[in-house]
Amino acid sequence: MTGWANYLVFIVATGGFYALLALSLNLIWGGAGMVNLGLAGFFALGAYASALLTVNAGAPILAGIAGALVVGAIGGYVVTMSTTRLRGDYLAIVTLGFAETIRLVANNEIWLTRGSDGISGIPGPLKAELGGWFNAAYALGTLAIVALVWFALRRIDLSPYGRALRAVREDEQVAQVAGKRILRFKIEAFAISAAIAALAGALYGHFNSYVAPDIFQPLITIYIFLAVAAGGVGRVSGAVAGAYLVIFFLESTRFAAAAIPGLAPVQHAAIREMLIGLALIVVLRWRPQGILPERIPPAPRPQSQEAT
């Protein structure tokens, strides 16, 4: 494959990881109204779980990915159970702390994670068989997984379960008065959301064959919040669209900044960050509720037209 084709494949695959993270955030933030600033932590948890299982324990890749899903879900469960009385800013602070804790553990528990050196040699599925086509095949596989997760989350979104979840998002007390067991909804939503973020991490690790603590900086979480906000909070398709929009801005500004003559490389980097911010401001000025705003599904028309 040519350099440009490889670059495109890289963008598609990275967009897929971002899309999974955005779907994860959209479920918990757009669906249940819980602000999770610890997304990068769950991303790291999945990446390390799968890497350790496949590299250290010699488990098959599918077992590594399954392990990442389980570890992510358990992490989500633990965070929800330890923050049952927190909402809004307070929950956000605790989840941010969780992500930093995961990163610091990965950096310092060298016996397990090899510290800042990271874990290399993470196997990729059918890598030897596919040879030069591995990246393209992996990118397509990632897209298929994004589609599968999108489909499952859309089913949840349109179901009575999704409706109850939105009620929890809007007003927990009124949802309780309506008879909803809000803790159950919050735990389940957080666990699924964390498992999806962990899945993104596992897929990332098997694609790049390397994970290290520095990859999981809080900036990733910020990018994903921007993706969901630009795509449309509360809309499953919006999360995927927003993720690819952010990837487009991240990559296109790389060339736009470099095209400005007379600047040092460090200035190019700064200009690039400014252009990304500016582009997202323009998107949100143009579409304050995102490219694909949340929709209210129309009430199904009744078969009987008789009033009580």
């Binding site: 409706r163 939105r166 809007e170 007003d171 007390q173 009124v174 949340e294 209210i296 009430a299």
Partner: peptide
Amino acid sequence: RGFPRLSVFQ
């Protein structure tokens, strides 16, 4: 009080 962004039907 209610759920501001949910419809009457919801």
